[in-house]
């Protein structure tokens, strides 16, 4: 295998799985959309029409926002909260942002440390939180786009049913917006909590998401 492929196995594999799943969603979504069209006495639409519809957009992006919310929460929560026995947690006495020495910032930076870890001031402050910040910003953008695409899709459904369209602010208070939002949030929170708790007593040999198989159930913060 080429080295660049092997070096990027995780990123490439999940990128490929994402695209395959999105294609699956496109075809299944089109079929469901056209079922609805027939029920309403409207003409079925083409795949191109569906892929350029707000209905497709909101179905994709409502899932995106919850994933980034999940990682945003997880990245920040794991700074401050610990879980005894979990490889997802830090050791119990390390809760918090830790010392500059532990984090290799400013004068404690090493030769190969990123420049923004060394430089100090606002750049080190931002770089020190960049993973959570980007997850949080992408979440907010996705949620905003969900509200816009969901609003457009909602209004075209309203028109199909000879109902009045609503304003964007009206859509933000609509059950459709919050049902889409919460049904995605609940599953993410359950999955993250499960990962933190189930990994205390269960193992996956060779995975950095797990403790070593022989590690004690009480061992916290070990990966292997």
């Amino acid at each position: 295998m080429r080295r660049s492929v092997r070096d990027n196995g995780l990123g490439l594999a999940f990128g490929g799985l994402f695209l395959a799943s999105l294609i699956g969603q496109a075809f299944a979504g089109l079929a469901q959309f056209n079922e609805q069209q027939v029920v309403q006495g409207s003409e079925p639409v083409s795949l191109l029409d569906y892929l350029t519809s707000s209905s497709f957009a909101v179905d994709v992006v409502e899932n995106w926002q919850s994933e980034y919310l999940q990682f945003f929460f997880y990245v920040f929560a794991t700074v401050w909260l610990v879980q005894r026995g979990s490889p997802e947690s830090k050791e119990l006495d390390q809760a918090g942002t830790e010392s500059d020495e532990d984090q290799r910032v400013g004068p404690h930076a090493q030769d190969d440390s990123p420049a923004w870890a060394r430089v100090g001031g606002w750049r080190t402050l931002v770089f020190s939180r960049s993973l959570g910040l980007v997850m949080g910003v992408v979440f907010l953008l996705c949620w905003g786009v969900q509200s816009i695409a969901g609003w457009a899709a909602y209004n075209s459904e309203q028109l199909g049913q000879h109902q009045d369209p609503v304003r964007w602010t009206g859509y933000l208070a609509a059950p459709d917006f919050w049902n889409r939002t919460f049904q995605n949030w609940q599953s993410e929170m359950l999955a993250v909590g499960s990962m933190a708790v189930l990994s205390v007593y269960l193992r996956q040999r060779g995975s950095p998401e797990s403790k070593p198989v022989g590690a004690a159930h009480d061992d916290t913060g070990q990966t292997g």
Binding site: S4, D7, N8, G11, L12, G15, T52, S53, S54, F56, A57, V58, V60, V61, W64, V138, L141, C142, G144, V145, I148, A149, G150, W151, A152, A153, N155, S156
Partner: peptide, 30 residues
Amino acid sequence: MGSVRALFVAYLSLIGLGLAYFALLGLLGR
């Protein structure tokens, strides 16, 4: 590290372009 950086940029671009596209569909009211 060149290929790793390229993948990093590809992921961020995918998210950004995807969001811009979906926002556009919503704003066009399609």
